[in-house]
């Protein structure tokens, strides 16, 4: 199984080496009703990287990931992965949703959840077989949950649930991973284990986008950052982008007029 994994990586490697950008988010605007959540966001990634998406609450961080993955409709703009539509690149995309997005009382075991990561490579009606199960166990091993394979997911701690989701994403054998707050509500040890894993992925030439809201750890964890507050304030290498000035623009009161504007938009569309 290990060999098939590494061969999978090498066959996909030339795609990364070519000039096509890994991710191209072009002029993306998203609104709930008339209230803009993302405004004209442009983001292009050409090199594999570990990118942190940071910004205050309600800045549209999760929405950006959902917009890229086609989970929320775009008002305008387009998204490409490896130069092609997201729909055609599903197999090279991995996803870690927010932990609260599912029912943890659902009757499935930890292994079952990780196996779901392999469903993308299985066709209709096809059940996961011995190969998939062995691979899922290997993924569980990578996140240090081998001993929990047969537990019901509801019996796990928050950190373990998060690692289960991570293992599921690993099972997808993707090239680009999108992770929505993987550090939310996990203990310090789990957080360290996760970041080590993410760096390993990055060394294997994968790209990982992480929604993150801890400003203290952001510059340590990520080599690239995207600073978001409805619009993209700045994006680039952490060293040159994660500056006081950009932080102030992202978190500061400079966007009061934008706020007022979205209020004006809302009130006009509601009451007229």
């Amino acid at each position: 199984m290990q060999s098939s994994l590494s061969s999978a990586v090498t066959t996909k490697a030339p795609k990364l080496a070519s000039r096509i950008s890994i991710l191209d988010v072009h002029d993306v605007t998203v609104a709930y009703h008339r209230k803009p959540v993302l405004w004209d966001v442009d983001l292009t990634l050409t090199e594999p990287c570990l990118l942190g998406i940071i910004g205050p609450n309600g800045a549209g961080k999760s929405t950006l990931i959902k917009a890229i993955l086609g989970l929320v409709p775009l008002v305008s703009g387009s998204v490409q992965v490896f130069g092609q539509s997201v729909a055609s690149q599903r197999k090279s995309i991995g996803y870690v949703p927010q932990r609260e997005s599912v029912d943890w009382d659902f009757p499935v075991s930890v292994l079952d959840v990780v196996l779901m990561g392999t469903y993308g490579s299985l066709g209709w009606f096809q059940r996961p077989g011995a190969t998939e199960k062995a691979w899922a166990r290997q993924c569980l091993d990578m996140v240090g949950l081998s001993d929990f394979a047969d537990r019901q997911i509801g019996q796990l701690s928050g950190g373990q649930q998060q690692r289960t989701f991570l293992a599921r994403a690993l099972a997808q054998q993707a090239d680009v991973y999108f992770m929505d707050e993987p550090f939310a509500g996990v203990d310090a040890a789990t957080e360290q284990a996760i970041i080590v894993l993410l760096r390993k992925l990055r060394e294997q030439g994968k790209t990982v986008l992480v929604v993150h809201h801890d400003l203290r750890t952001a510059p340590i964890y990520f080599d690239q950052v995207a600073m978001l507050n409805v619009r993209l304030v700045a994006a680039g290498p952490t060293a040159s982008t994660f500056t006081d000035e950009n932080l102030h623009k992202t978190y500061g009161g400079r966007l009061a007029i934008l706020d007022r504007l979205s209020q004006a938009v809302e009130s006009q569309t509601r009451t007229r």
């Binding site: 002029d27 405004w39 004209d40 442009d42 619009r231 304030v233 700045a234 623009k249 400079r254 966007l255 007029i257 934008l258 007022r260 504007l261 004006a264 938009v265 006009q268």
Partner: peptide, 25 residues
């Protein structure tokens, strides 16, 4: 000036937003 949006991008945004700017704003 304030939001640091590059010049080639501002028109697209403004073209949508101007309809909501009242005299006060």
């Amino acid at each position: 000036a304030v939001l640091d949006v590059p010049a080639d991008h501002v028109h697209a945004i403004a073209a949508r937003i101007e309809h909501y700017i009242g005299p006060e704003l």
